[in-house]
């Protein structure tokens, strides 16, 4: 039963990622908001299954909508890993953890994403970020640095909102859902 629930949480995480991204583009928000499911799965199931959720959601939307999304699975996977390890270490019940996660992800996601974007697209996205990228390219004179810095502000807002959204949902979940994550934390505490 537990194993089946884990599989279904991964499915739901991927679904939320895709639906979140769709709703974001439907409302024309200048954010991504397509990692909520990854963060939720990483908090509930731990780092490795969280990373699997992230990678599979990009692979799935790559297969169905646009194959160029598949290389960015790496970014989503890294997000799952980072959130999973932080949640394993600190729990996800206090108000500080989402801030830490938001700040770490705001650096880590562009750090992994910009090299891919520079290699595949020359650093361009075809969106509003390109204007900041162009301005930075004129002043900093380095392609990677400009692509990295241009992505930080959007990512910071995006990941903070996602982390707090998951935080409020996680706190409201019934205890039997939290068992999945708290049991793992206790096991780790016993081992150490």
């Amino acid at each position: 039963m537990n194993r089946n629930l884990k599989i279904l949480i991964i499915v739901v995480g991927i679904g939320i990622n895709i639906i979140g991204g769709t709703l974001n583009s439907a409302l024309k928000l200048p954010l991504f908001l397509d990692t909520i499911g990854t963060i939720l799965a990483a908090v509930l199931l731990g780092p490795w299954l969280g990373a699997l959720t992230g990678i599979l959601s990009n692979v799935f939307s790559g297969i169905f909508t646009n194959p160029i999304l598949i290389p960015f699975a790496l970014v989503n996977g890294v997000i799952g890993l980072i959130v999973g390890f932080i949640a394993l270490k600190r729990g996800y019940e206090d108000y500080v953890t989402p801030i830490i996660i938001g700040l770490v992800l705001a650096i880590a996601a562009p750090l992994v994403g910009s090299p891919i974007a520079v290699y595949v697209f020359g650093g361009l996205t075809g969106g509003g970020v390109d204007i900041i990228y162009g301005l930075l390219l004129g002043t900093s004179e380095r392609i990677f640095t400009s692509a990295f810095l241009a992505r930080i502000p959007t990512n910071l807002v995006d990941k903070l909102i996602s982390a707090y959204l998951v935080f409020f949902i996680y706190r409201a979940l019934p205890p039997q859902w939290k068992m999945l994550s708290s049991a793992r934390r206790e096991k780790k505490a016993e081992a150490s």
């Binding site: 039963m1 629930l5 279904l8 949480i9 739901v12 639906i19 909520i36 959204l165 859902w177």
Partner: peptide, 16 residues
């Protein structure tokens, strides 16, 4: 998005 996530989680429990 919040109601959708909550409903999806409950559906996951049922499907499991």
């Amino acid at each position: 998005i919040i109601p959708v996530i909550i409903k999806a989680l409950y559906r996951a429990q049922g499907m499991a």
